[in-house]
Design a protein around this nucleic acid. Structure first.
Lengths: 356, 356
DNA sequence: GTCTAGCGTGTAATCGGTTTCATGCCTAGC
DNA sequence: GCTAGGCATGAAACCGATTACACGCTAGAC
């Protein structure tokens, strides 16, 4: 039992394939009796248009590539959700792909070259070889159907959606300063990333605006990973004077930091305050509930898909379109008002007292 | 500047399209000089095979549909990662989709009917209309190229990957019993889900094997959501005698529970032990680190994709294939050995003492 | 009564590859 | 010297839909 084709339907209904196609695409151009016969035949044969044949003929796949560095990063989950929902609304499918590091291939280049997708959304700093992209631009006469979130390479300034990382970092830092903290540490994220640079700049600006000095020792470069937070926690715990607050440029890092501090017997926020960035899926059920910058991830997905849709419909008009989305400071428990801190020694004593 | 076609290449090289196709697919059948000329022409014109034309001709899209109820659920992240990696290896793309509840359409039916994908992987209890599936089975002569994780509807018993939820739940319960707990509560998850039923059964089995009675009051049906955990926490805190341990059939629920308990001044694991299920992305950096059942999510993705690949290559031979993956009990801090619990009153006293 | 406009429908080309079949040439075997 | 077989290549069909163009018929205008 094979799928029925237009030709099968046309035979069954005693008409030409052209008429069947008209019934499907502009039924008002077909006389009522003929239309009826064709529709019956379609029913009887259980006919559905072949997606591949349609793509071939129309030169449009209805597929959108979503390229990310690591599909498994939970940061994307909600973005995927927004993308998917919106793609459905526009009649697209989303194909999600990460670069295969061993093979060294670039999914974006490949997909656009083979024409297996109509457009591309890239969600992070995705920096493959410029020369291939130069070629792409040539092919697409300056406007490949690409849309991004946040950072873009200079050689391919595609339309994009972003949030103001610098302002957000400034807001978090100010939040800490407002609560009495003057000695604040910062974990800015992986070197080389634009997000890192922006967030760090925001931190520095807020500190300098408040007339506070930043000891280079209090900046801990690293990556957006729990192990970075853990490592920094161990290092901090050994120092003579700890900062009273630490701003991690990523919730996962913050959680790694807090959890390690907890096993070292240092409590958040009683002994040290911690702020994060992302408002990841578990920031609100963390103990303590994490004060963080909420990125509107669902909306990022929705906006990116809508933007791409615009770009695909009118590439030149939307060539330079940029959509800024609002961040939000989610103030919860992990950043507390500064109180005279009990020394570590005192803490141990009280713990001992409780046991005894 | 448009993409070059086989025909363009053939003209440039002064050969027929058949020869170009041979160079691409079975180069050994073309004489060296001709082959050279064709390859040159391909280079010069920057020729790449059209994906749509190929799909059309070969009747294979190289696309795999991954159907889930909610793309945004972070539980899938790592599974997606495994699926993606393996799909790449087999030369497939993955299209990720959730049903559009308003439109009431079923992505699986639609995708298979239009032929826009070659196969389907479904990751949770995905129970759309049986009659449509009956039709699908007819079309595919009994073996639609579908593979699932865990639960399947009776009317479409596709090959699948699973973990033994019942045994895993039994293991967690036994772990609590081994640590001295006899009064254990259980949050089994959303009613109607097979996972819920299995995990609950495992819990009951372990309790009865240990000769322990389960008060129906200690079973809290709900869903895999933080709010369920929170609600149960509030309810428990009001009871005269709390269980000394609670087994939540999902980490998110466990975290909601723990975080609410924490704001109520009840500490985990000092006052009550909590076990989870999933080993989600943050279970290890939670405070306290969460004791849970680790599902091998990456491996689930890998196995499902490999299984689908087998099914697509030989549907009849793999019609009933089932792959069982191993769970693991991750014993961390949230389940502690039972100690004589301080009453809530005592706790408040000691807190007051600390302040004073 | 003739001419024309327009409606409904069919014929055939088209998209870009792959594949079957045919053809011409060369070589080896007798 | 003739033939069989094999190799390199080309011509054309094909996958399933859409669409430009052609055609015939009817109705309305003069």
């Amino acid at each position: 039992m094979k799928r029925a084709s237009v030709s099968d339907v046309s035979k069954r209904a005693g008409v030409s394939t052209a008429t069947v196609s008209r019934v499907l695409n502009s039924p008002e151009r077909v006389s009522a009796p003929t239309r009826e016969r064709v529709l019956e035949a379609i029913q009887e044969l259980n006919f559905v248009k072949s997606a591949t044949a349609f793509s071939f003929k129309s030169q449009a796949t209805k597929n959108i590539l979503v390229a990310v560095n690591n599909v498994g990063n939970i940061f994307y989950s909600e973005i995927f959700e927004g993308l998917q929902r919106r793609a459905n609304a526009h009649g697209y499918n989303i194909i999600i792909k990460s670069p295969d590091l061993e093979a060294g291939n670039d999914p974006i280049i490949e997909a656009l070259r083979t024409g297996s997708v109509d457009g591309v959304i890239t969600l992070d700093d995705y920096f493959p070889p410029p020369d291939d992209y130069a070629l792409l631009r040539e092919i697409y006469q300056g406007t490949p159907p690409i849309v991004g979130f946040a950072e873009r390479p200079d050689y391919l300034p595609y339309p994009h959606v972003w949030i103001d990382n610098r302002a957000a970092a400034r807001a978090m830092t100010k939040h800490m300063i407002d609560r009495g903290h003057t000695h604040i540490g910062h974990l800015p994220g992986p070197p080389g990333s634009a997000a890192t640079a922006e967030r760090k700049a925001g931190f520095m600006e807020a500190m300098s605006e408040a007339g506070l000095k930043v000891d280079p020792e209090d900046i801990y470069e690293g990556g957006f990973h729990r192990d970075v937070g853990r490592r920094v926690a161990r290092r901090l715990a050994r120092r003579q004077t700890m900062p009273t607050a630490v701003f991690c440029a990523n919730d996962e890092t913050a959680m790694g930091f807090i959890s390690e501090m907890s096993t070292l017997g240092i409590a958040v926020p009683d002994d040290i305050s911690v702020g994060g960035f992302d408002n990841n899926a578990f920031a609100d059920v963390y103990v303590p509930a994490l004060t963080t910058i909420a990125q509107p991830r669902g909306e990022i997905g929705v906006s990116a898909m809508d933007l791409l849709h615009d770009v695909m419909r009118d590439p030149t008009a939307n060539r330079n379109k940029v959509v800024e989305l609002k961040y939000r400071l989610a103030s919860r428990l992990s950043v507390a008002r500064l109180r005279p801190t009990p020394s570590k020694k005192k803490l141990k004593e009280s713990a001992a007292a409780e046991k005894g």
